[in-house]
């Protein structure tokens, strides 16, 4: 279980990635954050940001109708 779950299903603007970034900013180093997204682009875009920002992609889980992307804050 992630430390925090953000339900960003149905979010187009600001969108799942913006919700994730703001949550990562507010989280403590070492915490995990899961974002739920119905936007098919999230599984492609979020890992790019995670890498660029120096965090860890813990996993991408495909559920029925949405994806769950789990990230650990590293710095």
């Amino acid at each position: 279980m992630a430390d925090k779950v953000i339900d960003a299903r149905g979010s187009f603007c600001p969108g799942p990635m913006m919700e994730l970034i703001r949550a990562v900013k507010e989280a403590k180093v070492g915490e995990t954050i899961a974002v739920l997204s119905t936007d098919s682009g999230s599984k492609r875009d979020i890992p790019l940001w995670v890498q660029k920002a120096g965090h860890e992609l813990v996993g991408v889980i495909e559920h029925k109708g949405y994806d769950e992307i789990v990230v650990r804050k590293l710095r």
């Binding site: 187009f12 600001p14 969108g15 990635m17 913006m18 682009g41 875009d45 790019l48 940001w49």
Partner: peptide, 10 residues
């Protein structure tokens, strides 16, 4: 901009 493009909406 925060994302990999100029706005959240593609």
């Amino acid at each position: 901009f925060p994302l990999g493009r100029a706005h959240s909406i593609e």
